[in-house]
Amino acid sequence: MQATVTDLRSDVAILQLRGELDSDTAGRLRSLLADLLERPVPRIVVDLTDLRFCDSVGLSAFVTSKQVITARGGWLSFAGANPFLVQLLETVGLTRYFAVFPEVEDAIAASRL
């Protein structure tokens, strides 16, 4: 998995993931999320457009970050997921806890509401 963090605005970070997120690469994701969670109010859009695969170990990194994000008044949303990832997020119930948007721009627009 490759990852890039872009600060779109002073209060929103875009975390773009590429490749495969699995037990071999989840540590990198946890490290990136830990850095983003240091912000006073973490607001993160995870761009899944170029992520081809994700397993349960990868998803657990998002789930474990949820408590910190919520406690600080922030949020984490997903954008651009392919049909496999959308189905995975729905199957494991993450769509009840994280917003999933078709495009990054949609997630950003929703953050302004």
Rank of each mutant, 00 (worst) to 15 (best):
A79E: 07
V41R: 15
V46G: 07
N82G: 12
L89C: 10
V86W: 08
I44D: 02
W75T: 03
Q16G: 08
F84D: 12
V12I: 15
R9P: 00
T91V: 08
L32H: 07
M1N: 02
R72D: 00
V12C: 04
P42S: 04
G27E: 13
R28P: 00
E20I: 01
R30I: 13
T95K: 06
A34P: 01
V46E: 11
C54V: 15
P42E: 02
G58R: 04
A81H: 12
F98E: 10
R9I: 02
L37F: 08
R9Y: 11
V92S: 02
R72N: 11
G19Q: 12
L32N: 04
I14W: 01
D47I: 04
G58N: 04
V5D: 07
A99H: 07
N82E: 03
D7Q: 13
L37Q: 13
I14H: 02
T70R: 11
A26N: 07
D55K: 00
G27Y: 01
A26M: 09
L94K: 05
S65L: 05
V5L: 09
G27A: 14
A13P: 05
G80I: 12
P42W: 02
P83Y: 08
L32M: 13
A81F: 10
L48I: 04
G58Y: 03
T49G: 06
T25N: 06
F98I: 14
P83G: 11
T70D: 11
L29I: 11
L89S: 09
